[in-house]
Design a binder for these strands. Structure first.
Length: 110
DNA sequence: TAGTTGACGACGG
DNA sequence: TCCGTCGCCAACT
């Protein structure tokens, strides 16, 4: 598969700090993909090709774990977040605002 | 080749 | 504030 932008998405996801989360829109915005759905596509594909990717740190803009259905088992996404100290209530991160991380911080660091 | 789908988000009523 | 609709664009059938 020569979809280079998939790799770009993986790179960003891999850089998300432990205990922090981000949204599909933030990644799409940072990479200039134009659509958050592209990020969803990349992440769905990552389940098959990038098993070590911390995809559980990517939520939708409401802080909901909309992608958990693609994990095996689905509870794994929630478990991984809790393991990192991120509270999950009813498939959602209550303090999403405070834990939200924008890829822009990555560019500012380097 | 064309139509449908999808782990989303912004906007208008 | 809540809900429905539309746009985004690549992959799949």
């Amino acid at each position: 598969m020569d979809t280079h932008y998939f790799q770009a998405v993986y790179d960003v996801v891999r850089c998300i700090p432990r205990g922090r989360v981000t949204s599909y829109g933030a990644i799409a915005d940072f990479l200039g993909l134009g659509s958050a759905r592209m990020v969803g596509w990349a992440l769905r594909n990552s389940i098959l090709t990038e098993s070590d990717l911390p995809a559980h740190r990517v939520l939708n803009r409401n802080g909901e774990l909309t992608g958990r259905a693609h994990f095996t088992p689905p509870e794994r996404m929630e478990a991984l977040l809790k393991e990192e100290g991120v509270p999950v209530v009813d498939s959602r991160v209550p303090d999403f605002d405070q834990r939200w991380w924008h890829p822009r911080e990555l560019a500012e660091e380097s």
